[in-house]
Amino acid sequence: MLLFLVFSDTVFGNGPGTLAAPAASRVTYETKLEAVRLHLVEGCTYRKIMERFGIADRHRLKVWMKKYKELGEFGLVDQRGRRKEYIDQNRYVQALEREIKILKKCLEIWMQEMKRIDI
């Protein structure tokens, strides 16, 4: 089964003698961040932001806003192809910092106990 799409005089498809279909345009991190900033800081409407950046889907802006509110700027980074451990890196670092605090406190208590026993 052959599939063909015709754009002007260029033929795209999956059959022999055809060109690969053009890649969908990807929105950069900077564009997403600017769109979020325009909405949150300057109070621009979704419609104005969509017109300014040529975004066809209003839902896409809502997803960016939600990700920004949940994860900050890191939420706007394209995560496709990344392992989940790297996505949750910030939480992992925070857990390690809490563990370090606990261990330091345990060491401090242990040292005090050792000094008290030696006396």
Rank of each mutant, 00 (worst) to 15 (best):
N14L: 09
R82W: 05
R26H: 14
V77A: 01
R37P: 01
D88P: 11
K67L: 12
Q94P: 10
Y86W: 15
A95P: 00
K69V: 13
L38A: 05
L2W: 11
A56W: 06
A20I: 12
R37S: 09
T28N: 02
R83L: 13
A35N: 08
A23V: 07
G43F: 12
Y86C: 12
L96D: 00
Q89V: 15
P22T: 10
F4Q: 04
K104R: 11
K105V: 05
G43Q: 13
E30M: 10
M1E: 07
E51G: 04
V6A: 02
M65Y: 05
D88H: 15
G13M: 03
K62H: 13
Y29T: 10
A23R: 13
V77S: 01
F12A: 03
V6K: 07
Q89E: 14
D88T: 15
F74M: 02
G17Q: 03
K101P: 00
T45M: 04
R91W: 14
E34T: 12
R47M: 03
K101F: 04
M65H: 06
E51F: 00
K48M: 02
H59C: 08
A24Q: 09
L103G: 07
L103K: 10
R80Y: 10
C44R: 11
I100Q: 09
Y29V: 06
R52L: 13
N90M: 11
G15P: 12
I100A: 06
H59S: 14
G43C: 06
P16K: 08
Q94C: 09
L40Y: 00
F53N: 05
F12K: 09
N90W: 11
E42P: 12
R80W: 08
R83E: 14
L19A: 14
D9T: 11
E97C: 01
I49T: 05
P16M: 09
R47G: 06
S8Q: 12
R52K: 06
T31C: 08
